[in-house]
Each structure stands twice: as structure tokens, then as C-alpha cells.
Design a protein around this nucleic acid. Structure first.
Length: 946
RNA sequence: GGGCUCAUAGCUCAGAUGGUUAGAGCGUACGCCUGAUAAGCGUAAGGUCGGUGGUUCGACUCCACCUGGGCCCA
């Protein structure tokens, strides 16, 4: 028996069945690096690129302050799939990765590490440490990204701290300033009066603190209807018919607000109500001293009446009417202790959690207040200096006082005047300075802005959005909404690790100098010595000798000390990178980042670009979702559901991670978990083994001109599988082109599982193994298999670069040696194989096969047969006359010993007659008829004896 | 709380413009093979399409609301 096995053409290959991806990948990386594959790919493309064109995917710079996480990996893998695919299609597709190196997180991390020693460092010494810190993580992340198999210019990435990059930022600031987009204005920020410094959100610690809780009345000067004193302050929408109102209009009316920071009242310019809440008019016994009226009217939100009367201690009250908040808009009231009007405004951030549903607004002392202020163009009153003391613009009783001391004085004053309804104290979390641990305040300070409405920037940006392709399409809606409503862009920060705001001030008149030759002088400085030059030199050393203030002719200047928002830096990348690099071009074809960047990088890049060149820096923007666990929850330490790319690589390999990326639809959130990765691993094994099986049947294939003639002489079944291959190529290329990689994955995988493994390959084993070595049946199959394998590894290469390269190595050793699969081209559809009739016919074959297998299964269940090769199938041709022409192929297609066509429409399966051939294991009545080989069937006898 | 968004079998995905019994693969169960063997093949069981209400002769596909995720604001 065993000797017949020697006569078979069993599959042979050294390609291991079990992937040792970890080793393979590391060897591959070394080889790619040694052979400079990325560079050669680029060279090859450059020539081709002349016809085909460039494809510019511009990298969004990550922040270098730790190991990469799954989201980073996902992002870079998606980009790499595109780069590899486009390259293999003949585009010149360079990839220049970047890092966003400045910014607060590095500063704070460093301050944590070096602690008090920060004080002993000069600003340049501190910045040097920041730089070292950033570069350390650039290096780490670079290695991690490269380990994923991502091709790119890793030896010359762009860094936002490159001198050339910084110079471009300075230049862009100058250009925007020149065009009038840049201005200075007031904006509240967290401020520590003790340290006399601005604080970032990250530098604030919340601690329990005791605060006053005060209810304050703001009088409406003339509630009465017109006719008596001109304009009524109570719009007449809701009062005329109500007799209660008529009477009450003779009384004093008040809006009652609640605040925990009475010291901010001197900066009050408005009171906010919610447009949709119901407000009531409460007639109560007068609490104002020395007045003629016995009662007065309070306006507060209906939902807070109970709480209010309880706290104030009102027992007797009546609700005389009510109205929606929006009807109150525009009423002017008197400030409780300053000669100034306060405007009733509307804002939806007002809540009914506590207080009165009416919120005291001081745009200089609060983020929300500031925003409401912008909406209503309210003045920003800011009477508190850096040390937390009131200036002289406030009433004498608090002028010069520390803000906290003023709290008490203001309360006392209002008590005396009767404008304070209630004073309590309570504990709540309040922001404190992380350094001195003292309470911080919100304080409006001079900041730099980009004027979004200057010169129609907003409209231009909206137009640019319309000219951009957004993938998925709702991205357009999202960013449009954000641009539509965004306030001016505050671009100044009171920090050290960043690009300075390149502005000088005249020491005499205080006017800023920021355009033309002043900007040029700074650019030259930065080009030479980076932004450190700015911090090391005095204004006089930077400006050309003899510079005079254009305004007052003074010759002494000082430098701005603020730095630029890091979003301004990364938002400049299109100019600093695409314009500056020879092999890139502006604008980019594609930006590809997480959907959080609609607010971040996409937007900052857009605004700068619109101000700079009047259009978007990208033609298309693609966003992907976030990584979540298998329950759809975001990954977090506390949930313990984090999947780390480093671990996946270590345990399974980068190709598994890459296959995971390709397997899900990145437009939604992407779920990852141990179980999901196991599934991906299984799919990988299937694809790998299918390729391995293809490979193992090609060991004796030498394509000669003679063999190539086969192409025209293929068996029908082989023509069919090549037709299926063309369909696969078609589908995959379309999916790659539309950036739907999950479709590529599913198509490839389905092809491997259904068309190849379960059908074509299973059925072809007989002719491959048992047929004559050079028989047309076997060579035809090998020809097809070779075509399939070649196409398959190219199609999968952008997704599984390591595995594809590895297989390619084995294929190459069989045939022509080629250095790397990435120097090959994506397969194209070969029209020759597109035969619609053949396709329809085999569609029916597949259905017939299913029917037959159901019948075979019944017999198997009865233990009448085991393997399908023991079966004889009788097929009725009634209704399937088309099978007649396939008759000789049917046993092979069905992997049975014999097929008999009968006249009815039944399908009958029974055990085959004759005996089992010891060589091919098919049953045949010819077994035993051949002298010398009594155990062989006719076919095998002839193969063995020839 | 607001803006945008997602929700089809245990998992990953398909399901033009609304129209017969909602598809695939994996996984699972059972079985076969031992010449792809830490592989390969077959059969089968799993969804009424997140929920409720509406529009319609008819909805997974349109509308409203709700629930639960996600991103960005607050």
C-alpha cells in the first residue's frame, strides 16, 4: 500500500503551517530596512508617478508622551494600508510621519518629575528638558509604529519643533496678522492671585471650600405700562388682562439671583434666564426697609419657588402670574450697588439645580459668562488686578481690597441696602492652584485671538468645507456645525513650552509690532536658532538696528511673553510640511484621523489654511471611530478592558493587529477584546493555510512558454475559478479605492473559505495528487493555482504585509526572484476570464452540490458511507438538463466515486460499486482488473505504468 | 444638558431608490476524513432586524419618541 503513496504528487512546502509571526516580522523589518524597500518603492513610483500622479496622505501628528495605544495603532495602520495600496497601484505615495512636540502635557509631566527644581532652571534650560522629553518619546513611538509594519520616512519625520517648522508658524502668524485676522482682547482664564499666574485646566485641583450663598435682588426700574414713564420694562405680552398684575405694577419689581461669589458682582453686566423655563411673579411682603409699599414682586423660576421661599423664610406669598424666560429678554435692571444697568439675557446653560433660575453674569469672571457676553456683545468689566485686588474703578468701600475681603464688604453693604435677601454658607468643591494650594479665581486678561468673522473667514471656511469630501459624509455636518457657531479662536497661552507669539510692543505707546519686517526679523532668528533664540535674546537684539515704532517713533521694545496654542502649531502643518518638502504637495489628498479631530486638527488646519490661501488644505477628510471593548464601552484602566498593541504584537504578531483593523468598519467605533482577537487569529490561520496549500502544490511548476499556452487550454473548472478570481480582484480594488477595507477583508476571506478551501481546492486534490505529473488536468490546476496565489498575496499585502512578504519569498524561490512584494503591482482584472455564461452555469453547479451533500449526509448518518468518496450519486436530469455537458466532470466536482444521470428529477445516493483503489481511494469496478496492480483502478493503473 | 453619531444572529460584516420564507463567514452542536493534519470537509441549530408609537396595502429599510453606546461641547 505504502508504495503507491510514493507515486502521488503530494503537496510539498517548507512554508510553516503555524505562523511564528514574531520572528518572521522582525526578520521582515530587518530585510525591508536593509534593502531600503520603502525608498526603492518611492523611486519606482517617482518614475511611474509622472504618468499616474501623486497621492498625498498627510499625517496628523500624535503627541509624544507615552507608549502608543490601540487608537494610535489603528490610525497608523489605516494610513499604511492606503499608502501601500496606492503605491502598488503605481501612485507616488510618500508618507511623512510627524509629531506634535510642544504643549502643556509635557510641561506638566516634567514639572511633576523635577518638582521644585523648576525654579532653579532658566526658561531655556526648562525648554531644553521639555525637548529632551519629547524626543525621547518620539523615538519610542517611532519604533512602535515601525514595528507595526508601517512604511514611511521614519528617518526624517516632521517635528513641530524643527526650526523650519517653527519658522513657518511665525510666518503664518505674520501673514494672518497682515491680513487683519489677529487681534488682542479680554478673556477670562483661571488665575492664581497668589502665584500671579495663569493656570491651565490640568493645573487645577478641586477641594472642598466654604463659600457664601447669597440671594440678591436686582430692581426693575419701571415695571409699569407705558404712558406714565415712557417704556415699560415688563413687556405686555402677559399682563394686560390680569387684574393682579395691574395692581402689582404699582409695586417695586425685582429679579432675584443667587451667587456664591459676591465679589464678582462689581463685574456684573447681565442676568441670564433660560428661554424655555417658566418664571413666576411672586408677590411677597416687602423686605425692603423704609419704603412705602407693604409688598413687592420677585421674579424667579417656577421650579425653584418652594426651595426659594423656604430658604428666605417667606411664609406668605402669592403667584400673580407667570411667563416663559424668553419673554423677559432685554429688560434692563439696576445693579445693586453700582450706578449701572444690567441686561436680562437668555442662555440655555441656566439650570434649575439650585438658586433661582436667574444667573448673575460677569463676563470677566467666568467661562459661561464670557460666552453669553460674546452672544450679547456685553462689555467685559474687569476691576481685579493680578494680585487679586480691586482697582479704583469700583465703589470706594471695596476699592483696593483683596477679592476675598471684598466678599464680606459687599455682603454687608447689600444687607444695609436691603438688596440682599439671604446669606448662608455652604461647602462645595472649588478650584485651587496645584502649586500654592490656594483658591483660584476666574479673571479676564489680555489674550490673542484669530477673528473668525474678519474678512469673511467663517463663510470662506464653510465654503471650503463644502468643497471637501467628508468620509463618512456626516463629518461635513459635524464640522460645519462647529465652524458655524464657534467663537473667535484664542491662540495665546501663558506657558513656556511652545512657539512664542511673535510680537513686540513699543515700550512707550504699547502698540504691538507684528507684521512685515518685524515678523521677518523673528523668522530669521528662528530659522537660525529655533524659538529658543526668542527666549534668549532681548527685543533690541532681534530687531534690525534702528527700528522705530511706526506709531510713535520710539526705539525701545519689549517681547510678548505668551506662546501660541499648540493647535495653531499642528494646524500649520499643511504649510510647514506639504509646502516645504520637495516630494510632497499642497493641498493634501487626504487627512485621516479619529472623529475627535473635527474640533481639533481638521478645524485648526482649515482656519489657518483659509486665512492663508483661501481654501482647505485637504481634498478629502476621513474619520475613524474610537476603540471600544466588545460591549461597546470605551477602553479604560478602571474597566480593565484595555487591549494594548504591544501585547498583541508580542503574543500574536502585528499582522493580527492589522487584520483586526481591516476586519471592522472603521467608520463606526471599533470593538476589540481577547475574544474578538481570537476570531481574527482564526481567520488569519485560514487565509494563511489556504495560501500555504496553494504554495505546496506549486513545487514542481516551472512556467515555460509551453505551459503558458495552457492559459488558452484550461479546464472549464479552472477557467471558472479564475473568473471568480477576477471578481475578487474587481471587488477588492473597488473596496480599496473607496477605502472600505473591511469589504476587502471579507471578500478575501470568503474567497479563501468558500471558493477555494471548501470547493475548488478540495475538489482539485484528486487531479493534483493522483493525476499524471504532467497531465493536462494537473498542469491546468497548477496554472490556475499559481495565478490565484500571485493575485491573493498582492491583494492582501497592504493589510498583511509581513505574511504577504513571507509567502512571496517562497513563491519567488519557486520562480523568478523578486526582492519584495511591495515592488510589484496590484493585480488588474483580466477581461479574458469574464464569461457570464460560465458564471451562471457554475452558480447552478454550486446549488446542485449542496443538494447532493444533503443527501450524502443522510447516508452518513445511517453509517452506510463515511467519506463522500464511497458514494455513487444518481442525478435526475429533469429540470437540470444543463448538467449533461458536465457529466464527465461531475464525480470530481462532487468528490464522489461515480455519478450516473437518470431520467427523473430525483437525487439518489448509495454506496459505490466495485472496490476502493488503494492509490486514489475512489471506488471503481475496474479495481482488480490489472495484472501486477490488483489494487488499482483504471486511471491509477495508467498513471503508474506510464 | 446640547451638537453629531451608532445599534441586523454569541462575534465580524452584507442587506440600491420600502415589497416573496432577513444573507455570509466565524463560533457552537453533531458527523466525516487522516494524502493541507496543532490542518481539511459536511450537515444542522441560531436573528423578526435595540424598544415603543406612527406613515403605508406593505418597513430592517421613512418619521417621532425612548433606551443603551461613542465622539465633541457644557
Amino acid at each position: 500500500m505504502a508504495e503507491y503513496k510514493q507515486t502521488l504528487n503530494l503537496p510539498k512546502t517548507d512554508f510553516p503551517i503555524r505562523a511564528n509571526l514574531k520572528n518572521v516580522e522582525e526578520e521582515c523589518l530587518a530585510k525591508w530596512e536593509g534593502d531600503e524597500i520603502y525608498a526603492r518603492m518611492r523611486d519606482r513610483e517617482r518614475d511611474k508617478g509622472k504618468e499616474k500622479g501623486q497621492y498625498i496622505l498627510h499625517d496628523g501628528p500624535p503627541y509624544p508622551n507615552g507608549d502608543i495605544h490601540l487608537g494610535h495603532a489603528l490610525n497608523k495602520i489605516l494610513k499604511d494600508i492606503i499608502i501601500k495600496y496606492k503605491s502598488m497601484c503605481g501612485f507616488s505615495a510618500p508618507y511623512v510621519p510627524g509629531w506634535d512636540c510642544h504643549g502643556l502635557p509635557i510641561e506638566t509631566q516634567l514639572i511633576k518629575e523635577i518638582g521644585d527644581k523648576r525654579k532653579d532652571l532658566s526658561i531655556t534650560e526648562f525648554r531644553q528638558k521639555c525637548k529632551e522629553y519629547a524626543l525621547k518619546y518620539v523615538d519610542l513611538q517611532r519604533k512602535e509604529f515601525q514595528r507595526l509594519g508601517v512604511f514611511g520616512e521614519w528617518d526624517k519625520p516632521y517635528l513641530t519643533i524643527d526650526h523650519s517648522y517653527e519658522e513657518k508658524i511665525v510666518e503664518l502668524f505674520g501673514i494672518l496678522a497682515e491680513k487683519g485676522y489677529i487681534y488682542r482682547g479680554l478673556k477670562p482664564i483661571h488665575w492664581c492671585p497668589h502665584c500671579e499666574t495663569a493656570l491651565a485646566e490640568a493645573e487645577i485641583e478641586y477641594e472642598e471650600d466654604r463659600s457664601p450663598s447669597t440671594y440678591v435682588k436686582f430692581e426693575i426700574p419701571n415695571p409699569k405700562p407705558a404712558c406714565r414713564s415712557g417704556r415699560s420694562q415688563i413687556p405686555n405680552k402677559f399682563q394686560i388682562q390680569n387684574p393682579n398684575i395691574q395692581t402689582a405694577l404699582e409695586l417695586p419689581w425685582f429679579f432675584v439671583i443667587w451667587t456664591t461669589t459676591p465679589w464678582t458682582l462689581p463685574a456684573n453686566v447681565a442676568i441670564a434666564a433660560h428661554p424655555d423655563y417658566e418664571y413666576v411673579f411672586l408677590e411677597v411682603e416687602s423686605r425692603t426697609l423704609n419704603v412705602e409699599h407693604r409688598s413687592e414682586v420677585y421674579i424667579i423660576a417656577k421650579g425653584l419657588v418652594e426651595d426659594f421661599v423656604k430658604r428666605i423664610g417667606i411664609t406668605d406669598y402669592k403667584i400673580i402670574d407667570k411667563t416663559k424666560g424668553k419673554n423677559l429678554e432685554g429688560i434692563l435692571v439696576k445693579h445693586p450697588f453700582i450706578e449701572r444697568d444690567s441686561l436680562l439675557v437668555l442662555d440655555e446653560y441656566v439650570t434649575l439645580e439650585q438658586g433661582t433660575g436667574l444667573v448673575h453674569i460677569a463676563p470677566g469672571h467666568g467661562e459661561e459668562d464670557y460666552k453669553v457676553g460674546l452672544k450679547y456683545k456685553l462689555p467685559i468689566v474687569m476691576p481685579v488686578d493680578e494680585r487679586g485686588h480691586f482697582d479704583q474703578t469700583v465703589p470706594d468701600f471695596i476699592a483696593g481690597k483683596y477679592y476675598d475681603a471684598a466678599n464680606k464688604l459687599i455682603v454687608e453693604r447689600m444687607q444695609t441696602d436691603g438688596t440682599l435677601l439671604k446669606l448662608e454658607f455652604f461647602k462645595h468643591p472649588y478650584p485651587h492652584c496645584w502649586r500654592c494650594k490656594k483658591p483660584v479665581i476666574f479673571r479676564a486678561t489680555e489674550q490673542w485671538f484669530v477673528a473668525v468673522d474678519h474678512n469673511n473667514m467663517r463663510q470662506e471656511a464653510l465654503k471650503a468645507i463644502g468643497d471637501t469630501q467628508w468620509i463618512p459624509s456626516w463629518g461635513e455636518n459635524r464640522i460645519r456645525g462647529m465652524i458655524d457657531t464657534r467663537p473667535d479662536w484664542c491662540i495665546s497661552r501663558q506657558r513656556s513650552w511652545g512657539v512664542p507669539i511673535p510680537v513686540f510692543y513699543c515700550k512707550r505707546c504699547g502698540k504691538p509690532l507684528m507684521t512685515g519686517r518685524f515678523n521677518k526679523a523673528i523668522r530669521e532668528l528662528v530659522r537660525e536658532s529655533g524659538t529658543n533664540g526668542w527666549f534668549e535674546k532681548e527685543a533690541g537684539e532681534i530687531l534690525p538696528v534702528g527700528t522705530k515704532c511706526p506709531n510713535c517713533q520710539h526705539d525701545q521694545f519689549k517681547k510678548e511673553t505668551d506662546i501660541l496654542d499648540v493647535w495653531f502649531e499642528s494646524g500649520s502643518s499643511h504649510a510647514a510640511v506639504l509646502e516645504n518638502r520637495e516630494d510632497l504637495r499642497w493641498p493634501a489628498d487626504l487627512y485621516l484621523e479619529g472623529s475627535d479631530q473635527h474640533r481639533g486638527w481638521f478645524q485648526s488646519s482649515l482656519l489657518i489654511s483659509v486665512g492663508y490661501k483661501g481654501r482647505a488644505p485637504y481634498n478629502a477628510v476621513l474619520t475613524h471611530g474610537f476603540t471600544v471593548d466588545d460591549k461597546g464601552k470605551k477602553m479604560s484602566k478602571s474597566l480593565g478592558n484595555i487591549i494594548s498593541p504591544q501585547e498583541v504584537i508580542k503574543e500574536s504578531g502585528a499582522d493580527i493587529l492589522r487584520l483586526w483593523v481591516a476586519s471592522c468598519d472603521f467608520r463606526n467605533d471599533m470593538a476589540a477584546s481577547k475574544n474578538i482577537l481570537i476570531q481574527v487569529q482564526d481567520a488569519y490561520t485560514k487565509i494563511r493555510n489556504t495560501c500555504r496549500f496553494l504554495l505546496s502544490n506549486l513545487y514542481d511548476l516551472r512556467l515555460t512558454t509551453n505551459d503558458l499556452r495552457l492559459a488558452n487550454d484550461l479546464l472549464e473548472i479552472d477557467k471558472w475559478i479564475l473568473l471568480r478570481l477576477q471578481r475578487l480582484i474587481e471587488r477588492c480594488r473597488k473596496a480599496y479605492d473607496t477605502l472600505e477595507f473591511h469589504v476587502v477583508y471579507h471578500s478575501l476571506y470568503d474567497f479563501c473559505v468558500n471558493d477555494l478551501s471548501a470547493f475548488y481546492l478540495d475538489m482539485s486534490k484528486d487531479r493534483l495528487y493522483c493525476g499524471g505529473k504532467d497531465s493536462i488536468e494537473r498542469r491546468s490546476a497548477q496554472f490556475a493555482i499559481n495565478e490565484i496565489l500571485q493575485a491573493l498575496i498582492k491583494l492582501i499585502a497592504p493589510i498583511l504585509p509581513f505574511t504577504a512578504e513571507d509567502i512571496h519569498k517562497y513563491v519567488a524561490s519557486n520562480q523568478l526572484p523578486v526582492t519584495s512584494i511591495f515592488l510589484q503591482s496590484m493585480p488588474k482584472v483580466n477581461e479574458k476570464y469574464l464569461d457570464k455564461q460560465l458564471e451562471d452555469k457554475w452558480e447552478k453547479v454550486m446549488l446542485l452540490r449542496e443538494e447532493v451533500y444533503r443527501e450524502i449526509e443522510k447516508l452518513r448518518a445511517k453509517k452506510e458511507i463515511a467519506s463522500s468518496t464511497e458514494a455513487l450519486v444518481e442525478i435526475g436530469i429533469k429540470g437540470r438538463e444543463w448538467i449533461k455537458e458536465l457529466e464527465p466532470l461531475l464525480p470530481m466536482i462532487l468528490i464522489v466515486s461515480r455519478v450516473v444521470l437518470i431520467e427523473n428529477n430525483e437525487i439518489i445516493v448509495r454506496h459505490a460499486d466495485g472496490q476502493k483503489c488503494e492509490r486514489c481511494w475512489l471506488w471503481s469496478e475496474s479495481v482488480g482488473k490489472f495484472a501486477g496492480h490488483p489494487a488499482l483502478c483504471e486511471r491509477c493503473y495508467s498513471v503508474v505504468t506510464n
